[in-house]
Structure formats: structure tokens, C-alpha cells
């Protein structure tokens, strides 16, 4: 057994504690703005839409809250491992401290406050950004102010491509996603076969496409730009190739584009089912 089991190593725990707290606060005060500004400035998903902008803010806040926590644990490990390492070959026991209720209560209060703050902030952002770009299902709980006047665009996923229908333009179905700038848009995401996920990266939109389900997302576009679209839910063989590029264009250009699309796809329009929120084909069990 231990050579001198009762010898208590280490001394001056109070002083070490004070030193550690000072170090922690000092480093956090420097590190938090640094990570928040340096990392946070470029943090995705960018400013393609108001939803994306709110996600950027969210990510920055989370980063700001995470930094002192990370500093605390890493500094603690580094501090303890250098200061309290065993010196010399003989086995010495540390002080038999079994706990300190003040530290426990303090820890509980601090972590709970942090968590509640984060949850409250996330909930606020969820309401504020009208669902924050996440698919909300057929009856959205988080509505933007002028949701009644939103432009409806349908996203239809199937193995392994996205097509888009514009009910406001005669239900025309095209393989291209073009959206007007500075407009509130209501995306209806659905699928014809398996579960896909419509991820418009720069717009901060992600919504699973489920067969038989109308998954609604609200997004308010910012200025004209192009954006990446990827399928974010494993959907079978060519999942890796299910990507696309969409465009946000000025409103006038959007109007002329839809007119042109209607003309282009007029020959096939008659074969399409009428516009609906969901399309359920016959049970097809082994399409792939």
C-alpha cells in the first residue's frame, strides 16, 4: 500500500483557487471577444436571408458562451496537471477532501443559469426568425408577421433530384429554383418517394422532404445572389449527387423568369398532376 498514506500533498488550496479564478477571468475576458469577433465574423451560414442572419447571431452567442466554459475546463486541467502533479517516486496521498457544498451550489446555479439563458435565447430566436429556417411541418407554429402574403414555392424531392413548382404562376414545375429578392417566401417541401432534406445553405433553410407531408419553411430573402442546395438526408444510391444551385434575383427579373418558365414547360404541364401540397404515388416498394 501507499508508503505514507496520511501525508497530505499540496498546500494552500485557497491561494491556488484564487489564482485559478483570476487566471480564468483574465483569459476569458481576452478570449471571448477574440473568438466571437474573429471566428464569429465569418461564421456561416451568412446573410442570404433574415433567417440566415439570425442563425449567424445565434452561432455567435453560442460561441461567446462556450468560450469561457472551454477556457475554464482547459485551464483547470492545465493548472491542476502542472501544479498538483506528484513529485518524487514515493506514493503520497492527497488531502481527503470529499466535497464542498458551496462549490457545488455555485456550480449548479451557474450552469443552470447558463442553460436557461441559452434555452430562452434560442426560443426567442425561434419565434423572432419565424422557425429559424427549420422545416415546421404542415401547420407552422412560428409565423412571420405578414405570412398571409408570402409567396408560395413548392420543393419536390425525389430520388435523386429536386424540382420546384410555383403555384402562383400556374403551378409550373421547373428544375430550377429562382426566388425574388427581399421577399417573404413560404417553401412547401415534400417528397415523392423516400425522406430527403432540402438544404439551401446560404438561405439558412433546412427542411426534410417526407412523402405525404407538406413541410413548410418561411424564409425572407435578402439581395440577389446564388445559393447551394444539397440533399441533407441519406436518400439512397445517388444521394451524394443530389445537389443544385438556386438563385435569388430582383423581383422584376423573377416575374419575367416565371413567365418564361411557363412558356417553356407548357407542353409537359398537361401531364402533371394539379398543384397540391402533397403527392402520394401508388405504393412503390422497390423503386430503387
Amino acid at each position: 500500500m501507499a508508503a505514507s498514506a496520511t501525508t497530505h500533498g499540496g498546500s494552500g488550496g485557497q491561494n491556488y483557487g484564487r489564482l485559478f479564478v483570476i487566471l480564468w477571468i483574465g483569459i476569458s475576458v481576452v478570449a471571448t471577444p477574440l473568438t466571437t469577433i474573429v471566428l464569429g465574423r465569418n461564421i456561416p451560414p451568412g446573410n442570404g436571408s433574415t433567417e440566415a442572419t439570425s442563425q449567424v447571431l445565434d452561432n455567435q452567442v453560442l460561441l461567446a458562451v462556450s468560450t469561457p466554459i472551454a477556457v475554464f475546463v482547459l485551464l483547470f486541467l492545465g493548472f491542476a496537471l502542472t501544479v498538483f502533479r506528484a513529485r518524487g517516486p514515493e506514493l503520497v496521498d492527497g488531502p481527503p477532501v470529499r466535497g464542498d457544498s458551496r462549490i457545488q451550489i455555485l456550480w449548479l446555479v451557474v450552469t443552470t443559469t447558463t442553460v436557461l439563458f441559452l434555452a430562452a435565447f434560442g426560443t426567442f430566436e425561434l419565434f423572432d426568425a419565424a422557425g429559424a429556417g427549420a422545416g415546421q411541418g404542415p401547420s407552422p407554429a412560428f409565423l412571420p408577421d405578414k405570412h398571409a402574403s408570402a409567396l408560395d414555392v413548392q420543393v419536390i424531392a425525389q430520388q435523386w433530384e429536386f424540382t420546384y413548382r410555383y403555384p402562383g404562376s400556374g403551378g409550373v414545375e421547373t428544375p430550377h429554383l429562382v426566388l425574388p429578392a427581399h421577399t417573404l417566401i413560404r417553401l412547401h417541401v415534400t417528397s415523392l418517394d423516400v425522406v430527403h432534406s432540402f438544404w439551401a445553405y446560404e438561405l439558412g433553410v433546412k427542411a426534410d422532404a417526407n412523402p405525404g407531408t407538406d413541410n413548410v419553411v418561411y424564409v425572407t430573402t435578402n439581395g440577389p445572389r446564388s445559393f447551394h442546395i444539397r440533399c441533407a438526408e441519406l436518400c439512397g444510391l445517388w444521394h451524394g449527387y443530389m445537389f443544385d444551385t438556386g438563385r435569388v434575383v430582383p423581383a422584376a427579373q423573377f416575374a419575367s423568369w416565371t413567365t418564361a418558365q411557363q412558356a417553356t414547360f407548357k407542353p409537359v404541364q398537361q401531364y402533371l398532376p394539379p398543384y397540391a401540397t402533397t403527392y402520394l404515388p401508388d405504393p412503390q416498394r422497390r423503386a430503387g
Binding site: 500533498g9 491542476a80 496537471l81 492527497g94 477532501v97
Partner: peptide
Amino acid sequence: MTLWRGQI
């Protein structure tokens, strides 16, 4: 806290 003031 188990590490704190231990003989690591």
C-alpha cells in the same frame, strides 16, 4: 475537483 490538490 478530484484532480484539485491531488498527487497526480
